[in-house]
Design a protein around this nucleic acid. Structure first.
Lengths: 307, 307
DNA sequence: AATTACAATAAGAAATACTTATCATTACCG
DNA sequence: CGGTAATGATAAGTATTTCTTATTGTAATT
């Protein structure tokens, strides 16, 4: 018997419907049928009614199943509590350093801190703001921080990324730019624009863009007027009207009155979704401390899995 | 987190020694190291002392580990209790039919019944004695019994066997046989004997014997004076002095004053162990009831695994 | 009678746990 | 001290388990 099976059992027992329970538990319906049957086999007792459960339309608990349900819930609850108390005792004076890309929305950061604090109430979190995404990775790679909040892609080796959100691309431009009056722009209408870009060697999240531009017949590569090493510089260049740039739509520009993040749309007016930015929590892949591992393990709960 | 990991953790915590704990838990030592590390990773806290545990010679619990230990024990205990109460409620008026090869030692049968009754206190067990091993399998295959106690090998398809004990072969002979005065016999000294045998088509547990006899230079095959369909007949033939026969040393012959089960030894006097009889619990492999499955699952605890 | 809803089954893919072999560190013993 | 034994960690490959997709069978619904 395993806790996973108990979770599945409680799920089915509460929904009284394998299909819905499967959705709630983020597994397929056959997986549930199988594990429930294994569990019944080990206990030696049918937990749900019917030799073949299809003989009556609705799934019902047997008497034994009902008894087992209360026990199963109790066990799951205790396991959770056991983890939490161990964390409180063990993480008593533990500190973690979190490197955050400066332009991540504060809401996102707060959500992450909330998540961490709920599971590790006594944990102390030090936040380090970093001006560009490469530096977040560099800090993680060199152990200057334990965890990093940034966006894909990765340029350093040996780093693990856990996605927790997605965001569209948009175009960063000066408020005085001719296109600034529009609500959104089509990629095709940017054929004559000048571009600011992070260097190819910096990689960052600009790798995938080339292909898309080629498809839209936008000759971006030869219209790059400036390659910059950091986001601060990129913003400065745009502020000075030197050109426009790709950025994640989710970046925080509220401190920048002269800049504008303009949504991209397709030729037919629908939102541009061909490529998206992955927001991720990152940490070193080799020899992470249990604490780092556990914190990274939490973020999967932020993702909204859909099927 | 899984119950298996909790079991492993408790094992290590109680032994404070990975190697010994591994033996007790019937897994290899690396398996323990790995699972403990996974557990620590998920909880986010070191459960045993030391960054590298080799820095001090003995494994010790951290404070968090000590707290977690009591919780883990409680959870495991509750899981066990949950199974048991579900069984009591569910198996209230359940009946199981157990087909037993007649010559299995009563002690063995009692041990099995004990095992079943401890886990299913309210279970009713009907025993059916069957005169030979093929019939036990036939009864299982045809659903005339739910479980069977017999010995390998199997002759029917679709039957699962769980070994619970091993026994040496020995030689069944009449008490008046010239060799009956010895304490044990060598296979080589049986070259001139007449043999009683179960037919090749019955298979049973006599398949492997041919090879061994060939190796010992005993021309048994051409000295078979009688092929019999049942154990009762085999005993009768031996009782009448028609010949001798291979049987499992573990068979119960206490009701047979005129028969003798003579241990086999090697040329050098050591016990003959080249081939052994597997005592097994059998059941049908397709669509077993949960109860049957669970009972069969219990027998692994009777086996004495050694490493 | 035909269709829909639903759990069971089958079969193959993916993930996980386990095994053996080896390494690194420490304690022990001459 | 230097060599050996003990012990847990690590690596790499294997085995097992669990999951997924596709399909089937049965009962309820229209």
């Amino acid at each position: 018997m395993e806790l996973r099976q108990l979770k599945y059992f409680v799920g089915v027992a509460e929904e009284l419907h394998f299909g819905r329970a499967a959705q709630k538990l983020f597994v397929s319906q056959p997986a549930l049928s199988q594990q429930i049957k294994l569990l019944e086999g080990e206990i030696g007792v049918e937990l749900f009614v019917g030799i073949k459960r299809t003989q009556q339309r609705k799934v019902e608990l047997t008497e034994a199943g009902a008894v087992f349900l209360t026990e199963a819930k109790r066990i799951l609850q205790l396991s959770q509590k056991a983890i939490e108390t161990a964390r409180q005792v063990g993480a008593q004076q533990q500190v973690i350093k979190l490197g955050v890309f400066k332009l991540i929305l504060p809401e996102r950061i707060m959500a992450m801190l909330d998540l961490f604090s709920t599971h590790f109430p006594t944990l102390e979190i030090n936040i380090v703001e970093l001006p560009n995404t490469a530096q977040v990775q560099e800090y993680v790679a060199n152990d200057r921080v334990d965890l990093g909040m940034t966006v894909l892609p990765l340029v350093y080796e040996g780093i693990v990324a856990k996605p927790y959100a997605e965001a569209d691309y948009s175009i960063l431009m000066n408020r005085n730019h001719p296109l600034a009056t529009q609500m959104a722009v089509k990629l095709e209408s940017l054929q004559q624009e000048k571009w600011i870009d992070h260097g190819r060697e910096a990689g960052l999240f600009f790798g995938q863009i080339e292909e898309i531009c080629r498809q839209a017949n936008v000759n971006r590569e030869s219209n790059i007027v400036q390659v910059v090493p950091s986001f601060d510089l990129l913003k400065s260049m745009v502020r000075l009207g030197k050109g426009i740039a790709f950025i994640p739509a989710s970046l925080d520009l509220r401190q920048e009155p002269s800049l504008l993040s303009m949504p991209l749309i397709n030729a037919d007016g629908t939102p541009f979704k061909q490529i998206v930015i992955q927001h991720v929590l990152i940490h070193k892949s080799e020899r992470p401390t249990p604490l780092t591992q556990a914190l990274a393990g939490l973020v999967k709960t932020l993702v909204t899995p859909e099927h």
